[in-house]
Structures are given as C-alpha cells and as structure tokens.
C-alpha cells in the first residue's frame, strides 16, 4: 500500500470531484479527449484459416455416392424398364401406370396402412404407459434390461418363436385364446380374421420396448419445475401429464413414430415367416407384395416401381409428421 492512497483525506478533495476517483487515480487517464482519432493498426491479421473440409470429406462423399447414390439411381432407371433375369428393355412409365390397375398393389396399401396404424397405436400407448410406470421405479435398471430382451432378437427368429406360440396343435397362445373362448376353431394364423392381428401382436411384442426406451429418455428430461408449478397451480396428476409431460415428449415421440412407421414399411421378416402374406392375401401388406413381385416372380422393373412409390410415400409421411409435431403448442392446455 502506498502512502499516496491513505494520505488522501476527504478534506483535501476539491468540491465536485468524485471521491472514488480521487483515491489514487492518476490524472492523466482523464486527459485524453473522447473524440481523439485512433491510429490505424500497423498490420492486419491474416484472413480466416483456410478450409480443408472439402478435401478431407471428398473420399467419404465418393464412397457414399458409390454405395448409396448409385444403386438409387439404378432403381429409378430400372423402374422405367422391363427387367427380368436378363438385360432390361425400356418401357417408359408403363410399370407405374400398370400399378393403378393392380388390385393387389392397392390392396397392399390398405393393408399396410391398417397394419402400421395398429402397430403404432398399440406400441405408442403401451410403450408410453410402460415408460411412465418404469420411470423412477425401484427396479428401473433391471426392468429396462428385461424389457430390452425382445428387441435383441433377430426379427426372423422372433417370427419363428411366435410361429410356435401360435401353432394350432401345441401353441401356448392358441390354447389360451381357445380356453378364453376367443377362438372357435382353426389356428390363429390360418384364419383371415386373426392373422393380421397376430402379426401386429408380434411387432408390438418386439418393438414396444423401443418406444418405452425412447419415452423413458424423454421422461428424464421433462422439466420437473414445470410439473411442480402446474401442480401448485391446481392440476391433477392426469392433467399434469397431458399439459406438461406429453408436450415435452413430442420431440422424442416424433423420432419414435418415424422410426417405427419406417420400419413397418421395411421390416417384413417376421410377417414373412409367420404368414407370408396369407391366408387369402389377408396379410399381404405392400412390402410383402413387393418382395413377391421382385424376388418370386423376378419382375424387377415392376418391383423397382413399387419400391419407389413406397419410398415417396414414406418421405411425404415423414415430412407431414415433422410438420404436425412442430406446430406451436401454446393452445394446448
């Protein structure tokens, strides 16, 4: 501490001067007028660093183009041709126009819509319910692990397991449903009334845990303070769930729905193993029909056309979903 500081006493400060500045502030700081023109910098720093990104990314882009873009372009080209096992012949849009008169193609869409809607509705409601129950439960970690089991199984294997469970002579579910009087005669998979429900059930069994898992991650991030504020404001637990929890889950639920409906449009392993589209085409959802056209009858051109329509619809639905979920939620109370 210099004596200069402590020696300034109040009496020495001229009136009108700030006391604070008077304490040890050197006066030359105040000397420069505010309007003084600053000298220009002697040398400017070099511009932003060079960008190597493009060069670095080029190999990856090339590989990606080769393994992903090339087959996609081929698919489009193929859909405009009549391709069998050998070389194709140019047919223009005929593959597409023919689809509109193809009853099984149109039927396939209806069945796919039914199938996917049922799967999603059941998986979302059950998955969400499970997540709410498991969240914060005493055995949460163990329960989550147990729930994951079905997902670990290859879909075709899951199909086989359920084939046994549904079996008309020794299947456990067959026995159960018959004892409950829900099933009169015949086996579950060979009746047009129940076959669709049966494959939906398998999908629900295998993939509901995924929804639970995603919803659980979302539940952990629901802001606790908003839940509490709403509770003090007078909301019942149920109302709280719909007012705060659910809106906060929208982003993760969107991801879950997207994943699942796209899977429904692609994954047909279990359904193929269980029904193969039968009985009487009652479970011939579009991707199974596509599989038949392309790989049973080797109409690869028509198959490509079906695949492309499937792709376009998937993209449109995806866009639509994002739009719906991103709508401002202020009106929902």
């Amino acid at each position: 501490m210099t004596s200069g500081v402590t020696n300034v006493s109040v009496a020495q400060v001229p009136p009108g001067t700030s006391l604070f500045r008077a304490r040890g502030t050197s006066s030359d700081i105040e000397a420069r007028p505010i309007t003084a023109v600053l000298p220009l910098p002697v040398r400017l720093n070099s511009a932003a660093p060079r960008r190597y990104y493009l060069y670095l990314m080029a190999p990856a882009i090339a590989v990606l183009a080769f393994i992903s873009l090339y087959p996609f372009v081929w698919l489009i080209v193929m859909s405009l041709q009549d391709v069998g096992v050998g070389a194709g012949e140019w047919v223009g849009l005929k593959n597409y126009t023919r689809l509109f008169n193809d009853v099984r193609f149109l039927e396939g869409w209806v069945l796919l819509a039914q199938y996917s809607a049922m799967c999603l509705a059941l998986q979302l409601s059950i998955g969400l319910l499970l997540a709410v129950i498991v969240n914060g439960a005493r055995w949460e970690k163990f329960l989550v692990t147990a729930l994951l089991m079905p997902m670990m199984m290859a879909p075709a294997v899951a199909g086989l397991v359920w084939l046994f469970l549904y079996n008309g002579t020794f299947g456990w579910y067959h026995w159960l449903f018959q004892s409950l009087g829900w099933l009169d005669s015949g086996s579950i998979l060979s009746s047009t009334d129940t076959a669709m429900l049966a494959i939906v059930l398998v999908d629900v069994w295998q993939w509901t845990p995924l929804i639970t898992l995603i919803a659980l991650a979302g539940l952990k991030r629901v802001p606790q303070d908003q839940l509490e504020a709403n509770m003090v404001d007078g909301a019942s637990p149920l109302r709280n769930f719909f007012a705060i929890t659910l809106p906060n889950l929208y982003p993760v639920l969107l991801i879950a729905i997207m994943l699942r409906f796209m899977d429904n449009f692609r994954f047909i392993d279990a359904a193929l193993v269980l029904t193969g589209g039968g009985p009487a085409d009652s479970t011939k959802i579009l991707p199974i029909y596509l599989f038949e056209v392309a790989f049973k009858f080797f109409k690869l051109g028509r198959g490509a056309a079906i695949a492309l329509t499937l792709l376009v619809v998937t993209i449109i639905l995806g866009k639509l979903l994002v739009r719906i979920f991103e709508k401002p939620k202020s009106e929902r109370v």
Binding site: P223, D225, Q226, E228, A229, N230, I244, P247, P328, K329, S330
Partner: peptide
C-alpha cells in the same frame, strides 16, 4: 427459478 411454461 420462476418455473414458467416456455410454450405459453
């Protein structure tokens, strides 16, 4: 921490 509803 106020605990306002951010979407409202």
């Amino acid at each position: 921490n106020y605990a306002l509803y951010p979407h409202k």
